[in-house]
């Protein structure tokens, strides 16, 4: 039990959970509006797209890489899908658009995968380059403009609700989008992939030590390649869901999201150097950012302060965990010595 507790305190998740809880309680005490059905549903629904992105980026960061191209990738695939189906007068359900997005996402992810996995080029620079290429394809080749109408099937998918939560006091109601199910499924899938398959363990191993991973028998190149393919698919799904939920496609408004998503993942305890992190932490960190971005208004902080809070959160959060690492190293050294002394 004590050992379990000690191990728990060494992890990041409990702390981030406590911070999250404290923030929720603070908002609740100040506004009385946090733990209301409609607010919780609002947060859950606001979590879907950033949450999906975060899952992808979490896997990439654990592998020792990074991806800044996912917003451009998602924008390109969702725009191309929406535009093509609109032009074709498509009236069917969500399945075809989703399948198209996923195929395109996989293909574009594979581009990242080839450069990073097979050529071994630095992930940061490659994805910076592909991000630029994807954006150029969207704005140049596809001549992207804002699409105010989207195909009926996508519109439907965006407005369908699992259930509607109504706040008895204010009378406001919020819909729980169907896409939340997709999000939940991807959470489980990524959790399973990372914990119960050798593909996932290979990602952890690679993030720890790539040479050793290769020696141990992981196909590191192949693993990296498929990793970026998967991340491309998750990102493209997120892009399409966002289009559906917004009922329109604004080609550039996802661009620039990458940094806050990465920040959330890192706040959740994923080591930026790779090899460590968990789905739980990644979700908690993202949730923290989402709540700060969406709920500050509830405690009377004007929205103009949003960036200040998010920025401070990133600086303080990463600062505290950086300090922890330094302290942990020192403690470990001390512990070894005291153990040795005790033996002698």
């Amino acid at each position: 039990m004590r050992q379990w507790l000690r191990r728990l305190t060494r992890r990041n998740e409990p702390y981030i959970f406590l911070v999250l809880l404290a923030l929720c309680l603070l908002i609740e005490v100040r506004s009385g509006q946090f733990f209301t059905a409609n607010n919780l549903v609002d947060i859950a629904s606001a979590m879907v797209v950033p949450g999906l992105f975060a899952l992808g980026i979490y896997m990439v960061i654990v592998s020792g890489g990074i991806d800044v191209s996912f917003p451009a990738l998602a924008s390109l695939t969702s725009y191309a899908t929406t535009k093509y189906l609109l032009d074709a007068g498509y009236t069917g359900g969500i399945w075809l658009p989703m399948a198209m997005s996923l195929v395109m996402g996989a293909a574009l992810g594979a581009v990242n995968g080839v450069f990073i996995g097979f050529f071994g080029l630095p992930a940061m620079i490659v994805t910076l380059g592909t991000s630029s290429v994807f954006k150029g394809l969207m704005q140049g080749a596809l001549n992207s403009v804002q699409l105010a109408v989207i195909p009926e099937g996508m519109r439907q998918f965006g407005t369908d609700a699992l259930f509607v939560a109504t706040n008895p006091v204010s009378g406001l109601s919020s819909r729980m989008p169907v896409s939340f199910l997709i999000f939940a499924a991807v959470v489980l899938l990524v959790f399973f992939l990372m914990r119960y398959t050798y593909f996932g363990r290979g990602i952890y191993a690679m993030g720890g030590n790539e040479v050793s991973a290769h020696r141990a028998g992981f196909h590191t190149r192949r693993t990296k390649f498929f990793l970026y393919v998967i991340v491309g698919m998750i990102a493209s799904a997120a892009g399409l869901i966002r289009t559906c939920m917004m009922q329109q496609n604004h080609p550039t408004n996802m661009l620039g999201m990458e940094m806050n998503i990465i920040a959330g993942v890192v706040l959740g305890g994923t080591a930026i150097t790779g090899g460590a992190g968990s789905v739980t932490g990644c979700m908690l960190g993202t949730l923290l950012i989402v709540i700060v971005e969406n709920s500050m208004i509830l405690i009377g902080i004007p929205t103009v302060w949003k960036s200040v809070f998010v920025g401070a959160l990133i600086v303080i959060g990463t600062g505290v965990s950086a300090m922890q690492v330094v302290r942990a190293n020192r403690l470990a050294a001390n512990r070894n010595l005291t153990q040795e002394a005790a033996k002698a």
Binding site: R201, Y204, A205, G207, G208, N209, V211, S212, A213, R215, A216, G217, A271, G275, A276
Partner: peptide
């Protein structure tokens, strides 16, 4: 060639 980010158990069994 050990993985310091993984547990002893996993290091032993992976190969």
């Amino acid at each position: 060639s050990v993985f310091s980010n993984l547990t002893v158990m996993e290091n032993l069994a992976l190969n």
